[in-house]
């Protein structure tokens, strides 16, 4: 169990999430990709904390990352609900107004 092992696993999780976030068409699947990216970040922060500087204050950063994840979920689902209600769609390709 080394820092490098944990960070490589975290990098793999982050990259898989990145693939999902930029390739998926369904809004909820894009959110799953983002979740997977944050999953990797959580593991990386936990490993860096344990292997480099195991002072309790570092745990606060991990709690902030988890809080950011809940905010992302809450607002993401609210936006998905609005999108579905207004346009009856669940695809990102049908919500490209800001890219024009």
């Amino acid at each position: 169990m080394t820092l490098q092992t944990a960070l490589v696993i975290a990098a793999a999780l982050f990259s898989i999430g990145l693939y999902g976030a930029i390739s998926q068409q369904v809004v909820v699947m894009v959110m799953m990709g983002l979740e997977l990216m944050v999953n990797g970040v959580m593991l990386a922060v936990a490993a860096l904390w344990w292997f480099l500087a195991p002072h309790p204050s570092g745990q606060v950063l991990l709690l902030v990352v988890i809080a950011a994840m809940t905010v992302e979920m809450g607002m993401g689902f609210a936006v998905a609900t609005v999108l579905h209600r207004e346009r009856r769609v669940d695809m990102t390709d049908s919500a490209t107004d800001l890219s024009r």
Partner: peptide
């Protein structure tokens, strides 16, 4: 239901390779 599958795979693979390289080469 995916779009730009090949580009997405390439981007994710490059990011993963860059991160792993950084992890291995960094003197922790």
């Amino acid at each position: 239901m995916v779009h730009g599958k090949r580009a997405s795979l390439g981007t994710a693979g490059s990011v993963c390779a860059a991160m792993v390289l950084g992890i291995v080469l960094t003197p922790w």
